[in-house]
């Protein structure tokens, strides 16, 4: 009875697969080891622990006076501005994304290179650093939240149009064919079959992007494109840890609330 366990058949192994796994693992470890070279971990400032402690203390003893002062430079109005930047930026990018999405969606109606080209263009837009875009718009419209809106609006197209085009690729053909069968024109197909089927996915993806844009909007201020980032970087530079604390708290509360709200709307949509 006892020995029967010893005779259990061992799991069959695919030698080639195991070999590959080991190779990949060794390559990954080598890559990580290589990354440690020339990385000077000894260069940390001696006061690091002290400052980290100060920031933590600031979060638990925030500068409550900063929350609302009424002069438009307080936490509430800066957060409100950040939210408006994200909202308008997302709206602009949603509109620009629709034609890009139809261009880069791989459907049977067009040649493969057209969709491939669209996908490459979107990848390039995605990889163009947001901060550089913000600086370019600052040159065009001057520093302030308008530059942030435009930077977000154009940068988000890269990701949003990709999500949209995936939604288009996953569309059912049935509705389109039904409209064609009853003699509908291309315009009719668009209005009565494609768009109604697509709309929930578009709205859901746009809401998701709004969450992401809100996080981006709160850092655009670091380069002077409006929003909460600017007072934060000033507070960090002047070592006003209690103010850093209240701003961080404000950002966290805002992001959590918006995430929760957009999650609620998305759950009702689907």
């Amino acid at each position: 009875m006892e020995t029967s366990y010893q005779k259990l058949v061992p799991q069959t192994t695919n030698k080639l697969k195991v070999c590959w796994h080991w190779l990949i693992a060794i390559a990954a470890i080598a890559l990580i080891a290589w990354s440690f070279t020339d990385m000077d971990f000894g260069g940390i400032k001696a006061s690091a622990g002290q400052i980290a402690g100060a920031i933590f203390k600031g979060i638990f003893h925030p500068d409550w006076h900063y929350v609302y002062t009424g002069d438009g430079e307080d936490l509430v109005s800066e957060l409100w501005e950040t939210m408006c930047i994200a909202f308008l930026g997302t709206f602009i990018s949603a509109i620009i994304s629709v034609p890009f999405a139809f261009w880069s969606a791989h459907t049977k109606y067009k040649r493969w290179w057209s969709a491939r080209l669209g996908k490459i263009v979107l990848a390039v837009i995605r990889s163009f650093p947001e901060i550089v875009l913000a600086l370019m718009f600052i040159k065009a419209v001057g520093p302030g939240s308008a530059a942030g809106v435009l930077a977000l609006g154009f940068h988000s197209v890269g990701m949003l149009a990709k999500l949209f085009s995936e939604a288009i690729e996953n569309l059912e053909e049935g509705a389109n064919e039904a409209v064609t069968a009853t003699g509908g024109s291309k315009w009719h197909i668009m209005m009565f079959a494609t768009l109604p089927n697509l709309l929930p996915a578009l709205i859901s993806n746009t809401l998701y992007r709004f969450d992401v844009s809100l996080r981006s909007a709160s850092i655009l201020g670091l380069v002077g494109a409006g929003g909460i980032g600017y007072p934060l970087i000033i507070a960090l530079q002047y070592r006003q840890w209690d103010r850093v604390g209240i701003i961080l708290l404000g950002i966290i509360v805002m992001v959590v609330l918006v995430d929760w709200l957009s999650g609620w709307i998305r759950a009702r949509l689907v």
Partner: peptide, 13 residues
């Protein structure tokens, strides 16, 4: 909830 660049700014400090 904290964005990446914000974390960067804090850790630089």
């Amino acid at each position: 909830t904290i964005p990446d660049l914000l974390l960067g700014a804090i850790f630089v400090a």
